[in-house]
Design a protein around this nucleic acid. Structure first.
Lengths: 110, 110
DNA sequence: GTGAGTGTACGATCGGCATCGAACATGTCA
DNA sequence: TGACATGTTCGATGCCGATCGTACACTCAC
């Protein structure tokens, strides 16, 4: 672990999937916009998509809120590169905590 | 399939778990009262518990609402016996539609 | 430095859902 | 028939979360 380079990165706090409650996870996954983020994220390599590159039917402010909820639920990891924030789906860790749940979301039709 | 005996039983409509959307299921499972119903139900034989026998922190009207939501989500089957309505957890059918999901709910601590 | 691009924080609004009491419907039993 | 028990329906209420516009913070390139 090296020191975070930028100031933004220092304020980025993550939640360990192992410490997330089922309640929080279900609340996070109950929103269709958030599930679409997870599906879109699962289709490409880790940290290849910044928040702003997602095609979402909501405003920039709302999208930011959804990313924060997903991060707090232990569903994704984010890193700052330049002025952008890149995302990674925490497949293994999350699946270890809630086996099969992520698969259901990613398999959802649409 | 025989004809329903009572009038109430004739108005009892069920939802096939195979036709339930992930959205509806997540909405149903996002409520802690509903999850407690499922857990309590899983601990005893099928159709051994009537709606009124559950120890829930809500009024009679609200409890009735929760049972209706669970039934609509394909999570439980109900039969009328006398003036009571007995419940069965649709383990196999639901697990076939959403593998692993019910297990997570039943394993929830509390 | 300035400017543009990216993302967050803040405050306000809005809609939907959980909740309730009361009335109603149904069924059982005396 | 009456009294009682079980469960649903109805209308109203209150709260929480999704949503937005705006302002702000940060980073990079020039």
């Amino acid at each position: 672990m090296t020191e975070p380079a930028t100031r933004r990165a220092r304020n980025l706090v993550h939640t360990d999937p192992a410490e997330v409650s089922l309640q929080d996870v279900l609340d996070a996954l109950a929103d269709p916009v958030r599930r679409s983020i997870l599906r879109e994220l699962s289709a490409e390599p880790d940290f290849s998509r910044a928040c702003g590159t997602f095609d979402l039917p909501v405003s920039k402010a709302t999208a930011s809120h959804h990313f924060a909820v997903l991060r707090a639920a232990g569903l994704l990891e984010q890193v700052d590169r330049g002025s952008r924030r890149f995302n990674r789906l925490r497949r293994a860790e999350f699946d270890a905590r809630f086996p099969g749940l992520l698969a259901l979301v990613l398999a959802e039709a649409r």
